[in-house]
Simulated scan of single mutants.
Amino acid sequence: MFKQYIGWKFVLVSMAVVIIVATIWFVSSLSQRIQEEETKKVATWVEANRELLQAPADANLNLAVEIVTNNSTIPLILTDEKGEIIDSRNLDSTKIVRDQGYLQNQLENFKKKHPPFIMEIDAKQKIYYYIYYGDSLILKQVRYYPYIQLLVVTLFIVVVLFALSSTNRATQNLVWVGLAKETAHQLGTPLSSMEAWLELLKETEGNESVVTELGKDVDRLKLITDRFSKIGSVPKLEEKNIVAQIEHMTAYIRKRAPQRVQFTVHAGDPEIPAMISPPLFDWVVENLLKNALDAMEGKGTIDLFIENHPADIIIDVTDTGKGIPKANYEKVFKPGFSTKKRGWGLGLSLAKRIIEDYHKGRLFVKSSELTKGTTFRIILRK
């Protein structure tokens, strides 16, 4: 499903690129043709004005008058040979009245866009008018259209990708919850049977040592079942001493770790209260410690640093293992990602979900260096 999601992202982005490139090419070609047509219209307008000025009194000037009066879209500015503005057409009249520099600014813009048309008024006295023109509103809208379309397409892609991401995450959550609930259900039946057999063993003398060890294993299975049963439901958060909670889980892992691995808990305060779900938080610490043990291959040190800050509690789990490449900092939390030959790659993914979804905190790789070790950081908000 993840590959399918990536495939859809690629298809959407590719379609957007094709649409945008095709639109820009088409609009550029269209705007060029419109500009050529407008240049021809201005030339016709200039010729009509020249005819009106130079025609004899009895000439029929109806066509020239119609051409001059029909130009209502292309902005024009008429100047003399000294550059003084004589007249203007199709510009904002309110701005002309309110802003004395408006016409001059428009003239400078027109000069940058198009060369002027020169209209001869009196050849003997060398009187010439210069007609400068700009782009019509329609041409401006056509040129801005690709940018508007780019914005619309970008928003569309963002919405679609967000919807796909939400759907993908919701599906993953349903799988997690279903897997966890089914695991708890499957463990429940043999666990009940084991508890019954344990009670029978207690009634027979000489089984004291067996009963004690078997009882520990049954309690452990009950804890695991309880953890899985809490996935998918809103856990009850309790105020606990986070230092004692971490020390307890560290002591549990220490007994089951190789003797050449040293565990040390560093805490500035002996008691740091925090709102946690004890079974689920213990699961996170256990996963991080087991992950550190796997990375160290039987020897090294694991240090847990607990810092009490005004707004949050920071817990760093540092090992001296083989380290994690920087490219895998985020991948280690993805379901199914694992560097081990055995395992499903679910431990760190579950740990991240427990901290971020249930405790509203953060879990991430703070730092790592190949062959030297890794530090995972937990941040719990107070």
Rank of each mutant, 00 (worst) to 15 (best):
V21A: 15
V21S: 12
V21Y: 12
V21E: 09
A22H: 04
T23F: 01
I24N: 07
V27K: 08
S28P: 02
S28K: 09
S28W: 10
L30P: 02
L30H: 09
L30A: 12
L30Q: 11
L30S: 09
S31T: 11
Q32Y: 06
I34V: 12
I34D: 07
E36W: 03
E37T: 09
E37H: 14
E38L: 10
T39R: 15
K40Q: 14
W45D: 00
E47F: 02
A48S: 13
N49D: 06
R50H: 09
E51I: 14
L52F: 04
L52H: 05
A57N: 11
A57W: 10
D58C: 05
N60G: 04
L61G: 07
N62R: 13
L63N: 14
V65M: 15
I67F: 12
V68E: 14
N70H: 11
N71A: 02
N71P: 02
P75M: 01
L76F: 06
I77H: 04
I77L: 06
E81M: 11
E81S: 15
K82W: 09
K82R: 14
K82L: 15
G83Q: 12
I86C: 05
I86W: 06
D87N: 15
S88T: 12
R89Y: 08
N90I: 00
N90G: 01
D92T: 07
S93Y: 10
T94K: 09
K95P: 02
V97P: 03
V97T: 10
R98T: 07
D99W: 01
Q100T: 10
Q100H: 13
Q100V: 06
G101M: 10
Y102F: 13
Y102C: 06
L103A: 11
L103R: 10
Q104W: 04
E108F: 01
E108L: 06
N109A: 06
F110G: 01
K113G: 00
K113D: 05
H114F: 15
P115V: 08
P115T: 12
P115Q: 14
F117Y: 01
I118E: 11
I118P: 01
I118W: 05
M119V: 03
E120Y: 07
D122E: 10
A123H: 13
Q125Y: 14
K126N: 15
Y128V: 12
I131R: 00
I131A: 00
I131F: 03
Y133N: 01
Y133E: 04
Y133Q: 01
G134H: 04
D135I: 10
L137E: 14
I138D: 02
L139D: 07
P146W: 02
Y147F: 13
Q149E: 08
L150T: 03
L150N: 00
L150P: 00
L151G: 06
L151D: 01
V152A: 11
V153M: 02
V153C: 03
V153F: 00
V153G: 02
F156K: 01
I157R: 02
I157F: 03
V159P: 02
A163D: 00
A163E: 00
